[in-house]
Simulated assay, not measured.
Amino acid sequence: MLKRAVETERRKELGRFLRAMRERAEPARHGLSTGARRRAVGLLREEVAVLAGISSTWYTWLEQGREANPSAPVLNALADVLRLVPVEREHLFKLAKPEWLPEALPATSPDPWIADLLATLSPNPAYALNRAWDFAAWNDEAASLFGEFDREDPVRRNLLKRLFLDPAWRALFADWEVVARSAIAQFRAATVGCASAADIRAVLEPLKALSPEFERHWAEMRVEEAPIWSKRLVGPSGEVTTFDYFMLAPAGAGKEMTISLYRKRG
């Protein structure tokens, strides 16, 4: 019963993703009219089907979350029509072909050497996240910059929850909206293989219930890879400091554990 429910939710998520990408697509890039009489947002289902060389009924089934088994050529054709960037194309395949994914590992505690590694990154603030983006370990500089972490507090122990439910973190990031939307897109891409796991649901379900902003951004269906970029953080006196940000994957940990490193610019 549980396996069937997981499969049903996967198909629904595939349908939601296809619809979001279809509504984002620009008809003019395919030579289609965008006159005043056209009310549809993005491409029509029938247009996607014709451009991808498949039947409109079958494509509609995909968006409706009905049972289907699209081949790799069909998925690539859809990705081309919808103009998906590489991370979005990969996400499409992961949703449609879960049998190609490596088996998701259960949530585990971090190895003690992770804390030692973070200490060696001093004076750069750094913390480690598990696959649910709970803070697994951190160095003193990270605790000073981001506020104390607390594994027992349901909000303070998780990065996404702190972004959306902790007023101090909302005030901390000068470009909070950009950071928050990017974090959601990265989390969706990173957890596609374990989205039904209890630890992932324990993050998403409270956020959807408690934060209308999170629920709205989650519905956008965006996916991103972790970028190398800069973040502007606001200090206690209102001064803004720019940090270069890096997300690292320790060898042997895969995507079950990542390290976030902040390097002060200048």
Rank of each mutant, 00 (worst) to 15 (best):
R24E: 01
A189P: 06
G252N: 06
P106M: 01
N124F: 05
K231L: 03
S196L: 02
K255N: 12
F214C: 05
E47T: 09
W113Q: 10
G238N: 06
R45Y: 07
H30D: 02
R263T: 15
I200Y: 11
V74W: 00
E215I: 08
R37Q: 05
W133K: 02
R10D: 11
T120E: 11
K3Y: 04
F187I: 08
L51D: 07
W176Q: 09
A189V: 09
P125M: 02
I54N: 00
S182A: 14
L207A: 03
G238P: 06
R29L: 12
L129A: 03
E99Q: 14
R181F: 01
E148K: 13
A190R: 09
R232L: 11
R19Y: 01
L163K: 05
Y262P: 02
E239N: 03
R19T: 14
S211P: 04
V155R: 00
R83S: 05
G53M: 05
M221S: 05
A251I: 09
R39S: 15
R181S: 10
W218P: 01
A202C: 06
L233W: 04
A190S: 15
R157A: 14
A168M: 04
F135N: 00
F135Y: 15
T34W: 10
R156L: 13
S230A: 12
T8P: 00
F246Y: 13
P154A: 14
A198S: 14
E213K: 04
W169Q: 04
P27S: 08
R38V: 14
D244W: 15
R216C: 02
E177F: 04
L160G: 04
A68Q: 04
F93I: 10
D199R: 01
A96I: 13
L159F: 11
R222S: 04
D140E: 15
M1H: 07
S55M: 09
A180P: 00
D199Y: 02
E47D: 03
A49T: 04
A180Q: 12
W113K: 05
D140Q: 13
V240E: 11
L84M: 15
A168V: 12
L117S: 05
V203I: 09
L129P: 04
E256D: 06
T57P: 02
A132M: 02
G266D: 06
